[in-house]
Design a protein around this nucleic acid. Structure first.
Lengths: 203, 203
DNA sequence: CGGATTGGATACCAACCGGTATGCACCTGT
DNA sequence: ACAGGTGCATACCGGTTGGTATCCAATCCG
């Protein structure tokens, strides 16, 4: 039994604790001391794996936030034969499942975007990469539905995908401010209505 | 000619500078020293007018942010005989006029909601009051349009109003992250389409 | 078996933070 | 004209922050 952990496990521990701390307090107010206290590690360990607080934050974006979205949203959507139904189902089910986290702390990605994008070009770039992947994921689903004749040809899938992601983040943000699951449900219901509406021949 | 300013002008100077600083850096990262450097005032002046940094922030919410919304949005909407047209016009014109500010720094209200609501119940309360006033303003406009027969009776005006505000904030937030006026235009255009859609007999 | 490298701990630092105590002009009420 | 309050400046405080320099133990490699 080794007395030292594998380096990757320590790194992963730090990433996970940093994610939680950032989710709770935002990046700027995230305290390295608190992360270290939570993990039982020390500054030596942290600065061995990450050259700076910023690098830690960017790693959280790339390796925690992006990956979670990839696994929970992008992948199911990509593999679905009925993309529109899957999209609607994901919007309902994923939000329902994480409603407490969302109402209390909001969306980790959006929180960071709102806080860091105007302040730090590097954060902006990394966050935007995740955002674009998200929009692209929805756009592909919409285009497939369009190819299947489920939504009209004149629909601008890219613009609609951007709007869906925007509205979704908006709904989560407002629900967080209200501290209300009910607001989250009501708001995302309207969003689903909007999406359903795409189906009908709109004129 | 008096050598001392009227107290209210100093207070207003502080509020305005605090608003700008908070808009740029968020509340937690807003530096009192920077506010004082910008105004040429000192800690003595600040703590004479405000008992704490939190009180300053809450005053910015109540006296700057709320009042601006009141003047630029709530009031025009309340006095309009054609509420739906006015709403759509406001969404287009106000966003166009402030697009640079919105793309670079986002919506002052939403920025603070995202940052402070989960952290500080007092902020949450003050911010929520502004948010509710906003939603109520839109709801009243929708209800008037409904009474005028412009939108169908089965439309849930409260839910739609909440969704419009949420989506709007979402659109601004996403456009800020992309640093793109074009994204802001595209996104709010979809929102206006959604609102236009309320007009048609939807079934 | 023994140097070199890796993983991490300890102790420390300067900078900055919000907040406070005190002092001092000036205006006001009487 | 004088006492008191108002409006603000100056100086200072303890605490926290991100970051660094140093050191030790374990592992790996030859």
């Amino acid at each position: 039994m080794p007395t030292t952990n594998t380096p990757d496990s320590t790194r992963a521990t730090l990433l996970e604790a940093a994610f939680t701390e950032i989710h709770r307090h935002g990046f700027q107010a995230a305290s390295l001391s608190r992360i270290l206290a939570d993990t039982g590690l020390t500054k030596g360990a942290l600065y061995h794996h990450f050259p700076s607080k910023q690098a830690l934050g960017l790693a959280v974006v790339d390796e925690v936030i992006h990956q979670r979205l990839e696994q929970n949203i992008f992948r199911p959507l990509k593999n679905s034969p009925r993309p529109l139904d899957t999209l609607l189902h994901l919007l309902e089910e994923r939000i329902q499942a994480r409603q407490h986290e969302l109402v209390n702390l909001g969306c980790p990605l959006n929180n960071l975007m709102q806080e860091m994008s105007p302040l730090d070009p590097q954060f902006q770039a990394h966050l935007n990469k995740v955002l674009e992947a998200w929009v692209h994921s929805f756009e592909s689903a919409l285009k497939l539905a369009q190819a299947q004749g489920e939504i009209p040809a004149q629909v601008d899938c890219a613009a609609v995908a951007l709007f869906i992601v925007s509205s979704l983040e908006g709904c989560i943000g407002i629900a967080k401010n209200r501290r209300s699951s009910e607001a989250l449900r009501s708001c995302t219901h309207q969003l689903r209505c909007y999406i359903e509406h795409l189906r009908r021949p709109s004129l």
